[in-house]
Design a protein around this nucleic acid. Sequence first.
DNA 1: TTGAAAGCGCTAACAA
DNA 2: TTGTTAGCGCTTTCAA
Lengths: 337, 337
Amino acid sequence: MTPSRPRRPLTLRDVSMASGVSEMTVSRVLRNRGDVSPATREKVLTAARALGYVPNKIAGGLASQRVNLVAVVIPSLSNLVFPDVLGGISAELDDTGLQPVVGVTHYGPAREETVLYDMLSWRPSGVILAGLEHSRASRAMLEAAGIPVVEIMDVDGDPIDTAVGISHERAGAEMAGHILGAGYRRIGFIGTHMPEDHRARKRLAGFERALGAAGVPLVAREYYQGGSSLAKGRELTERILAREPGLDFLYYSNDLIGAGGLIWAREQGIDIPGKLGLAGFNGVDLLDGLPMRLATTDARRLDIGRRAARIVAGKDPRPEDGIVALAPTFLPGDTIR
Amino acid sequence: MTPSRPRRPLTLRDVSMASGVSEMTVSRVLRNRGDVSPATREKVLTAARALGYVPNKIAGGLASQRVNLVAVVIPSLSNLVFPDVLGGISAELDDTGLQPVVGVTHYGPAREETVLYDMLSWRPSGVILAGLEHSRASRAMLEAAGIPVVEIMDVDGDPIDTAVGISHERAGAEMAGHILGAGYRRIGFIGTHMPEDHRARKRLAGFERALGAAGVPLVAREYYQGGSSLAKGRELTERILAREPGLDFLYYSNDLIGAGGLIWAREQGIDIPGKLGLAGFNGVDLLDGLPMRLATTDARRLDIGRRAARIVAGKDPRPEDGIVALAPTFLPGDTIR
DNA sequence: TTGAAAGCGCTAACAA
DNA sequence: TTGTTAGCGCTTTCAA
C-alpha cells in the first residue's frame, strides 16, 4: 500500500512517533552513528521506510555545521574534456561520502564569480575549479571560505591553495620538439580567440618559445571565436593554407578542430603526414576511429580529476608547494611523419 | 587591503554589527526584499562587501522552507545529448532564481534511486529526470516529495507527474517510413545492448512495427555493450555486413556509431547512399564537417530541456494530461538516396 | 544504550 | 522603514 500524498513534508519527529523511539535515536540510526540496539534500529528503519521518510540535509547541515558537498566549477560541459575530469572526480569521491556539485561558467570571469558565490553559500567542504586565473573577488571569496580549494588543469601560475594539472607551457614546448624532430619547418597555429582561454594561450607561448629556441618562426596563425567543431576545423584549415600555401605543419588548440582539418586535408588529396603534418591537443578518444589518428597530447584529464578529488577528500596531503604537476603525454598518431 | 583569514565563518550578525543595522534589515537588503531606505541599503552593502560576507543558504533554506534548487537527474554526461538538454534547462532557469543541480546515474536504476534520495534530501523546488522507467522506490520518493516532477526525453509511458519529450516509438516508425520511401528493403539495425536503454528499445520497436506494416522484415541486428564511439561503429558495421552482405540499409541507435559506420563504409569504397544507406539518431552537430552528413532524427534535446524547465519554474502550466510531446524531426543528410 | 535541552544562522510574521 | 520574536529540523552536548 502506498502512503497517501503528504500535505506536510515528513520530519524526524514523524519517524520518532511512528516508531516510539526518541528523535535523537532515530537520527543516530539514520546516520549509523553511535551505539543503537539492533531491536531499536530495526523499529526505526521499518518506520522510516514505511513512511517514505527522506532526511532533511538543510536542517542537518545547519545543525552539524558540515555539508558533504564539493563544489566543482568548470567552464563548459560541451567541451568533451570536462566530462572526463568529472568522471575522475566522482570516481574518487564515491567512497568518501562527498558529493560533487557542478557549476558552469561558460568561460566568463563574472559568471565564475556568481557561480562561486552561489556555491559557497551552501558551505561546501571543498572547491575544485578550473584554471588559475580568477577575478580578485573570486580569489577573496575562496580565501575567506576556509576550505580546501583545488585549481585544476593548469599549473603555470600561483594557486590560491593547491593546483593539480599539467604545464601547458611545457605541453606546447614538447609538441614543438616533436614537430621539429620530424623535420617540419613551416609551421602554423590554429586556435580559439585567446583572452579567455588561458591554457591555450600558455600552450602557444611554450610552443613559440621552443620553436624560437630552434630558430624556427611561427609562420601563420588563425584564430576563431565560439565553440569547436569539425566544421570549424575544416574552414580554418582551408583559410590558413590559402593564405600561407607553403605551410608544412598545423598545430591546433584542440583535437576536434584538428580532426576537422585532417578530414578536409584528406579530401583535398594532401599528402599527410608527408607534405603536411597535423597535431591537436587533449587526447579525446571520441575521435578514435577516424581514418587517420591525429597526433596529440594527452592532457591527463582523468588523473587530474582524481588527484584533485583525493586532495579535497583528504586522502592525499596537500603538497608543500601546493602544486601537483602531472606530465602531459605525447600521443604520436598518424599525422606526424 | 584584504581582510584576514576568518577563524569562524561570517554570519549575518557580523554584517549587522559592522553596519549598525539590525540582522533582519541586513537580510532584507541582501535578498532585495521589502522596502529599505537607500542609505541603510548602502551601509549594509558596504559592510557586507568589506567583510566578504557570503550568505548561508543552509540556514536561509531552513528558515524559509524554500530552496532555489532544481534536481536534474540524467544517465550520463559523456553522451553528447545531455549537455544539450542541460543547456536548455539552464537557459530557461537563468532568470528564475532557480539553479539546476545535476546528478548522474550511469543508466543504473539502483544508482538513480540513491541519487534521487540524496537530491531530495536537499528539498529542491522541483525535479527533472530522464526517462519514464524508474524503480518502485524512486517513484514513491518522487510522489511523496510534493514538488513538480518532470520526466524528460520520452513520452511513451505513464509519467509520475509530467513528461516532456518525443515519442521514440514514433521516431523509429518515421525513420522506417523514410527508408522504405527511398526504396531500401534489406535493412539492419545496430544499437546498444538493450535492457537499460529504454528509449533505444522503443525506437527499435516503432521501427520494426512500421517495417512490418509494409511487409518488410528487419534482416539483421547487431548489439554492443558499453559507450558509443566511432570505433565501435566501424567494428559493428563490418561485422553486420560480414554476416549479412546483402543489407542495403543500416539504422544505428545513435549518430556516433552511425558516423563510425559511415567512415568505415566509405573506406571500403561502398557506394553510399546508392548501394548502402545509413541513418543515426539524435542530430548531434558535433559531427557536422564529416565528408558526408549522416541522415538522422533531431531528438529536440534543447527544446526538451527548455520546456521541462519552464514547467518546473512555473512559466508554463502543466498540461492536463501531463504530457508534452514534441515532434522528432527527420534530418535527411547525404546517406539516404 | 537512550533521551532532553540547547542552538546552528537565517527568515516569516508581526509590532512599532 | 525598521526591529523583535519565534522557530525551521536537525545534531551536539550532556545527563541518565
